[in-house]
Every structure is written in structure tokens, then in C-alpha cells.
Amino acid sequence: MRPRSNWASATGSPHWPRRGTGARHRRDYGITDAGRAELRRWLTEPGLDLAFRSAALLRVFFLWTLTREEGVDYLEKFAQTNRERLAALESIRDNAEWVGDPVQVCGWLILEYGLRRLQDLGGMGGLGRRAAHRTSVSTALRRWPASA
């Protein structure tokens, strides 16, 4: 990822290396004065863009184009993936050494958001089967083809 304009700089090198150093090829970046000013402007400007975008949930919207079985299968896999992600975030939460510095507090807020979101999405397992038995969607499901 290349930073926009002069908002960030790679530490230790005037050039953008193709790969970082170390076993994980990690690159460290530092924020420039111009970058800090832009960050402050972005964080304090009115008219926040709070839209939540999810390619996975957009796929859920279009499940009607698949067979019933394919839709149920997608929802089951979606729920399983979210349960696995939830377990990973719970492990981070439970094993982190929380010292309360400002950066860590903001990281904790993001972690907590992710945990709550995944707790909700992990419950989507069986949703396709439950939807098939709901009267309010019975008409739509009768139109949903049983096979391709």
C-alpha cells in the first residue's frame, strides 16, 4: 500500500521496499506532519461517513438467485467463518496485556466492535433452514428454485 501524497513515510529507508524486513516482512511507517494534519481534519470534519459495507452481506441479499440448497450452504459457511473469527478475536481479548494507554484503548474499542458484530453474525447458522419455515417468507421461498 502506498501512502497518499506525503502523509506517511517508511522508517529507515527513503524508498518504498517491495517487501519489509523480518520473518513476516513487516514494514513500519511513521506519520508525517502533513499526514497528522490530514488525519486530524478527517477525524474532526462534519458529515461523518458511517456507512457499513460488507461484501458478505451483499451476497446474502443476492442468495435468491441460487437454489435453496446453495443459499442454505452459503449461510452455514458464512456462520462457521464468523464463529472462527469470533474465537480468534476472543483469544486476542483474553490473552492481551491491557495496560490502558490511549492507542490500546482505541484498539480495544475496535476489538469490542468486532466481537459484538461477529457474535451477531455467528448466529446466522441455520438461518436458511429457519427462513424456510417462516410463514412471512413462504411465498418468496416458493419462488426460490429448489434446483438450478
Rank of each mutant, 00 (worst) to 15 (best):
A140S: 04
S13I: 06
E84D: 15
R19T: 12
R93T: 04
R40I: 14
N82M: 07
H25V: 07
T135F: 11
S5Y: 11
D49K: 08
A131I: 03
P14K: 07
T81F: 09
F61E: 11
D33P: 06
R2P: 00
D120E: 14
Q119E: 08
M124P: 00
L115S: 03
G128A: 11
D94H: 02
V60P: 02
M124G: 00
T32L: 08
T11M: 06
T135G: 03
Y29G: 05
A51F: 12
L50Y: 14
G125V: 00
G107E: 10
L48M: 03
R85H: 13
R142I: 07
T44E: 06
R116W: 10
V105H: 04
V99N: 08
P14N: 04
A131D: 12
M124C: 03
R2W: 04
S91V: 14
A87E: 03
P46G: 12
R41T: 11
W144E: 01
R4G: 05
E112R: 05
E84Q: 08
E97L: 09
G114C: 05
C106G: 03
S5V: 15
S91F: 09
I31R: 06
C106L: 08
I92D: 05
R53H: 13
R143F: 10
A140F: 05
Q80I: 02
G125H: 01
